[in-house]
Amino acid sequence: MTLTNPVKVITVLSGKEKFMQIKLQQLTKTYKEKRGLLPMDLEVEEGELIALIGHNGAGKSTLLKLLAGWLIPDKGQVFVDGVNLKNRLAVVRKIGFVPETPNLFDFFTVGYNLRLFARLFQIPFQRIEEILKAFNLLAFRNNKVQVLSKGLKQRVSIGRTLLADPPVLLFDEPTSGIDFDMTKEIYRLLTEFHRAGKTIIFTSHRPEEIKTLATRIIVLHQGDMVFDGSPQTYFQSEIHEKLYQ
């Protein structure tokens, strides 16, 4: 299934001068039972498409949730476009997060879910029509979310995230639990968003799948960053062999 051009619903940023969009300073999160994320410094340039890879428990989701404000760090700071993440209201329009499991109001319709978030973002309802059309959801607008497949829910979730057209998009295991065709579609979407100039960070525990997708690969292992470089370097490195072969 190919979606109607989703790039139409995002602001095309290409052509702008690139700058450091996300900056992590000694970002740390520890859990009682596991390590979480060790102190991490990281800089992300505008327009990068970063794949965060690592085994389960490596700290990938923790990092994304920290960037999305789902988790409060124990130490360290995050700046998005120079704004400290602690200033949540100032960064909510800058970062969009698509979690692994779509977190929608299941008992309401697709249309209601989008309208609610459009109201909260103070976005005109015309935007909802654009999103529904771009993500082939027009036929499902009056369907309750609970009757949709995981793939469709994921599309609604991505659509909802794009309502505010944030320049940074975070995807946590975007292809988890969905079929092959939908996986391809998600990766195609990521590429389109990237072409439109969005900064994208997504997690995957299947590095082979993202070989040709990412512009940068960051490998996490037991909460620590063990690799940060281009895909070409990564697939030739010992890290890939050690972790996945």
């Binding site: 999305a68 404000g69 789902w70 949540r88 209201l89 909510v92 329009r93 970062i95 969009g96 997060f97 979690p99 499991t101 977190n103 929608l104 109001f105 299941d106 978030f117 909260l120 973002f121 103070q122 909802r160 505010a164």
Partner: peptide
């Protein structure tokens, strides 16, 4: 539990 609150907290809602 359904992470809906976290989704709402990603909007300009206080």
């Amino acid at each position: 539990e359904k992470k809906i609150l976290l989704a709402l907290l990603q909007t300009p809602m206080r």
